[in-house]
Design a protein around this nucleic acid. Structure first.
Lengths: 226, 226
DNA sequence: ACCTGAACACCGTTCAAGT
DNA sequence: ACCTGAACACCGTTCAAGT
């Protein structure tokens, strides 16, 4: 009986941080973040929950491990071609896809500070691109934050519409929604469909990049004069 | 003994949704979101946990109630003076202060869809301002989303630096951080201090509003020609 | 070194019962 | 209508013990 259970769950190789975090991510993707428990995760790995504590000090550290997996995945998709600014743009676009591919995980990842080597390395690489594009440290910091804010916000919004939320107030829009009560919402809703969201995100990034390039050419002009 | 406990917790008036949500918010502010439990909340109200289920169907609905409180609070701070666009700007600025005043609550609020009457009313009012500023429904939707994305992202970033996180990977920056390993991060860090964040947020909103006004004057010119 | 078992101190929620 | 008590099916984490 015990042997049967173990074989069914595939426990051949020994555990390691990466495999645990990987399985945890699938669990989150399939069942939502609050369905991730050390006990259930252990079950999926054919192991007692307590075995996991040999690889992660606690659940929070496991979440850091999941963030690492995602960042490595994002980094792997990035190609080194194009100008530095094009690469910056592609990096943020790739980060945004996390929200779409892992909606349940995204929310808990987004507020985590970069604490691991992997995360810091990712951050360093991204800032290097800003540097290569000719931005000063001050400009790099500012535009990194602006773009990160915007991308994170877009991701969060996307999560809201994609990930099923635990049933809260059952006053779902469709139930009680009267167009005459909320005329502006009614008017705007067609333009905020999931199908439009991507284009809106792009337009926002366009605005930020235009501003950035404006600052860069100004600097070039100043240099030419002096 | 039981009487002592009750009197200590002030249970004079009967419960109502608003008071429960209010106390829940203070609990979150003081102890963090994952310290909010129905049992503990009941304790603070001098009541058994199960009594709360008479006012909220479940914990998720309680969170909706907290969001309502916050939105009412934000709305109360807004004055009706100035141009519609100025009022839009002040609305987002006020929303941002939530992240600063309720960092622990912010994260769980930000991904909640607007399901309650209160939240929809707030949304309607905000979209009305866009309308009054002369934006088309498409423009209203787009700029609402752009500004909301940006503000939410800024809030999330702020939460990351303000709200204490459960101890995860103990590789805190200071511990292992070697400037030569992460030169770009080192360079940029001084410009991303908490004291600078506010200014960066403002610069981002400035960029968005400049773009918005650009679209508006273009439309005016088109109208004049035709 | 890596995993188990039992235990501790908690959860959200249901349900029948009290007033 | 509003609250209680007991119960169910869970949690994260500690700690001593096994191999």
């Amino acid at each position: 009986m015990t042997a049967e259970k173990k074989s069914a769950k595939a426990k051949a190789e020994p555990l390691d941080r990466n495999r645990i975090a990987q399985v945890a991510l699938t669990l989150i993707d399939e069942q939502g973040i609050d369905q991730l428990s050390m006990r259930k995760l252990g079950g999926m790995l054919g192991v007692e929950a307590m075995a996991l504590y040999h690889h992660f000090r606690n659940k929070a550290e496991l979440l850091d491990g999941i963030l690492d997996i995602i960042l490595v995945d994002v980094a792997a998709r990035l190609t080194p071609d194009g100008t530095p600014l094009e690469r910056v743009r592609r990096t943020f676009d790739a980060l945004r896809t996390i929200a779409i591919e892992h909606p349940h995980a995204f929310l808990s990842m987004v507020s985590r500070r970069f604490r691991t080597q992997v995360a810091l390395k990712f951050y360093e690489q991204l800032l290097l691109l800003f540097h290569q594009a000719g931005l000063s440290p001050e400009q790099s910091g500012r535009y990194y934050r602006l773009m990160a804010n915007f991308t994170v916000g877009a991701g969060v919004a996307e999560v809201g519409s994609r990930a099923r939320q635990p049933d809260a107030t059952p006053i779902i829009l469709e139930n009680f929604y009267s167009p005459e009560e909320f005329p502006r919402i009614t008017e705007v809703m067609p333009f905020l469909r999931v199908s439009e969201i991507d284009q809106i995100y792009c337009s926002g990034m366009d605005i930020l990049f235009t501003a950035l390039k404006g600052e860069l050419t100004q600097a070039v002009k100043r240099d030419a004069l002096s």
